[in-house]
Simulated scan of single mutants.
Amino acid sequence: MLAVVQRVRSANVEVSGERIASIGQGLLVLVCAEPDDTPATADALLAKLLKLRIFNDAEGKMNDSLQQLNGGLLLVSQFTLAADTSRGNRPGFTKAAPPDLGRFLFNYLVAQAKQLHNPVEAGLFGADMQVALINDGPVTIPLSVRIP
């Protein structure tokens, strides 16, 4: 799975002018499933997200995780993370999982996250979403999780 992790002061998602998800301080994570991904891949990504030490501790060092902070987790599906621009100027998306698999894995990731952490919010798979955020730092980290 591919992800772009953004440490945020706040973030929200709107669909058709209606706010469907919102968090305060925490992580906004853009997520893309790839064709070979499985629930185990989603589990590995979630474990990494919850334990990634990118929040400042009492001394101002990036030492604390989302779990330690009890911050919000906002998951947003974004198949364009798998864009292939190696041939020409129009991106191809064959490296993204097919829609049914992508939907299944995204929904699985959200369900697992809600069992292990609170608060968890999510965008709407396949929707035209408007995502707003206040990036904190800014801290933005790309992740690629693969299960051998």
Rank of each mutant, 00 (worst) to 15 (best):
E59D: 14
P148Y: 03
E14F: 02
E59L: 08
Q25F: 03
G102D: 09
L28G: 02
P91S: 01
R90Q: 04
N135R: 07
K114S: 14
G92K: 10
I134Y: 04
A111I: 00
L133C: 08
A127Q: 05
R146S: 10
T80M: 10
G17P: 11
A11H: 12
K48W: 05
A96R: 07
L109S: 04
N70F: 00
V15S: 06
S16M: 10
D128F: 10
N12D: 12
T80N: 06
N118Q: 12
H117K: 09
G123S: 05
V110F: 14
V5C: 06
R9E: 14
S22D: 12
Q130M: 05
A11L: 10
N89E: 09
A83P: 03
M129W: 13
V120S: 02
P138D: 11
R90S: 09
E18I: 04
D64C: 14
L52H: 06
V131I: 15
T80G: 08
L81D: 03
A47Q: 13
F79P: 12
L52A: 08
S144Y: 07
T38C: 02
L2A: 03
V139S: 09
L28R: 06
V110T: 12
D136N: 08
V29H: 02
I141T: 09
Q78N: 11
P35G: 10
A113C: 11
I23V: 14
Q130V: 06
D57G: 15
P119I: 01
A3M: 08
V110D: 14
Q115G: 03
Q25T: 15
D43N: 13
V145T: 12
S22I: 01
P98G: 08
N107E: 15
S86P: 01
L124E: 13
F79A: 06
A111P: 00
A113S: 11
D136I: 00
V145Y: 02
R87E: 12
A127L: 05
D64S: 14
A111R: 13
G71R: 04
D43Q: 09
Q130N: 08
K61L: 11
R87Q: 14
T94Y: 09
S86R: 15
L45M: 15
D36F: 06
S77Y: 00
L2C: 05
C32P: 03
M62S: 01
G123E: 05
V76C: 03
Q130P: 00
D37F: 07
F104Q: 14
I147N: 15
R53W: 02
V120R: 05
L27V: 04
G126R: 03
S10V: 02
A132Y: 07
A42V: 00
T140P: 01
A44C: 04
D84P: 04
V31C: 11
N107R: 09
L2N: 11
A83H: 06
A82E: 09
L2Y: 14
L28A: 03
P35W: 12
E59N: 13
T85Y: 10
P142F: 04
R87G: 00
V110Y: 14
V29W: 01
G102W: 05
R53C: 00
Y108T: 08
V145E: 04
K61S: 10
M1C: 04
T85M: 10
D64W: 14
Q6L: 12
E34M: 13
L69Y: 04
Q112V: 02
V139L: 13
V131F: 10
D84Y: 04
